[in-house]
């Protein structure tokens, strides 16, 4: 899959995962790595980028075992971004799918 394309989709998935509840890095990397063919190592650079762009905030929270974990919380900007990307994605897949109808 094209890298830029994949990057955008990965971003949408991460934003969507965080809509439900705050998650820590490993959870996100694990979920995205399992469901999509991405290396888990590329999740962290993306999280950092989205944080820099103001779509996420981070905070530390004690974990039941061991040191505190870094949690990611989606911001209002992030929610807007997610809605916009989802809209683009739906439009795009609809357009692509229209080619396959009746084939």
């Amino acid at each position: 899959m094209n890298t830029q394309f994949k990057k955008g989709v990965l971003e949408l998935c991460a934003l969507t995962l965080l809509l439900e509840e705050d998650k820590y890095g490993y959870e996100l990397a694990d979920m995205l790595g399992k469901k999509m063919t991405v290396s888990e190592g590329s999740v962290y650079p993306m999280l950092k980028r989205l944080q820099t762009d103001g779509y996420f905030e981070t905070y530390l929270k004690e974990s039941p075992n061991g040191p505190a974990r870094k949690y990611y919380r989606i911001t209002n900007n992030g929610k807007q971004r997610q809605a916009m990307l989802l809209k683009q994605w739906t439009e795009f897949t609809n357009q692509v799918n229209s080619f396959f109808e009746g084939v």
Binding site: G25, A29, D30, E40, Y44, N65
Partner: peptide
């Protein structure tokens, strides 16, 4: 961030090698 990833991965029962494989190369 990556250190935390290793810590969580190990807590989930993975080996260091397995975690490295899933992360991809440090260069990438």
């Amino acid at each position: 961030d990556f250190r935390e990833h290793f810590r969580e991965g190990e807590a989930a029962g993975k080996t260091e090698e397995q975690i490295c494989r899933e992360l991809g190369t440090p260069f990438e």
